[in-house]
Write a protein that binds this DNA or RNA. Structure first.
Lengths: 151, 151
DNA sequence: TGTGAAAGCTGTTCCGG
DNA sequence: CCGGAACAGCTTTCACA
């Protein structure tokens, strides 16, 4: 855990929105020189606050128009079955995210498909045949907004 | 929608894992020159396949050890109440993502908090007082894996 | 901490196969 | 479509207030 000042917070918020902007452009906006901005970014990386930079891919542009969040309840859950389930679900190409959670469901999956018919195929032939998969609950994504969070 | 070849797919998969790597380093690994790799990335950006690059912030390193997914069912849902709800929920600092979904719930929120006691505070004083908020269902995140998806 | 300047790479754009 | 060469701009480092 590390303490941030206002400038650090401004830097993080700006880079969460767009990680391509240069340290000089960012520094100019927040009233800091280019090396000063760069050193702060480096410090945040070394402190583990910045985990990396990730490409945001637009699945729709590739023909995957449907995104579904799937809550999955396992029928049997020992340590082995958790690992088996995770390994098997990670091998499904349509699965974008695997979240192990506590609550009504054991896993939450983010799945993309070309359309709803394609999603039904994934659900029936890939998900429901997973080792240990029990009850599922689906939510179809309509729109999504990513915020900075409490930075 | 755009057709990708193997090289495009390799580029996307590599940049989803780490968007910091240079076109020359990436090109060397997939057997392409630096300008050729750069041109492909540029083409993917212009086609809208690449939406941008985002910083991945480690909330735990900032003292936010608890991540909760919250399904929210609205009590009343006209067009106005949807917009009111979205505006109000976007203003809560602890909310990282707002997903408008179809299914048992109307919205799915990704919320971070310092600990479970802090989450209870957010839930009682921020979420439950939202305009139109009805039934909620929480899932506490244990671990998460982000995959490339069907690229 | 902050600034300013210098060195090495990268992104970006040419042109020719 | 690719690769090679050139330039501007950036990242990265250093010295100093």
């Amino acid at each position: 855990m590390i303490e941030l000042d206002d400038l650090d917070r401004q830097i993080l918020r700006a880079l969460v929105r767009d990680a391509t902007q240069s340290a000089s452009a960012l520094g100019r906006r927040i009233g800091l020189s280019q090396p000063a901005t760069w050193r702060r970014i480096k410090r945040l990386e070394e402190a583990g606050v910045i985990r990396g930079r990730q490409l945001r891919v637009n699945a729709e542009a590739l023909g995957f128009g449907v995104t579904v969040f799937l809550g999955v309840k396992l029928a049997t859950k020992g340590r082995v079955s958790l690992e088996d389930f995770e390994r098997a679900v990670s091998a499904i190409p349509e699965v974008q995210t695997v979240e192990h959670v506590l609550g009504l469901y054991d896993y939450r999956l983010r799945i993309v498909a070309r359309n709803l018919a394609d999603f039904e195929r994934v659900l029936r032939r890939r998900i429901m045949t997973l080792p240990g998969a029990g009850q599922v609950e689906a939510n179809v994504l309509l729109s999504e907004e990513r915020l900075a969070g409490p930075i």
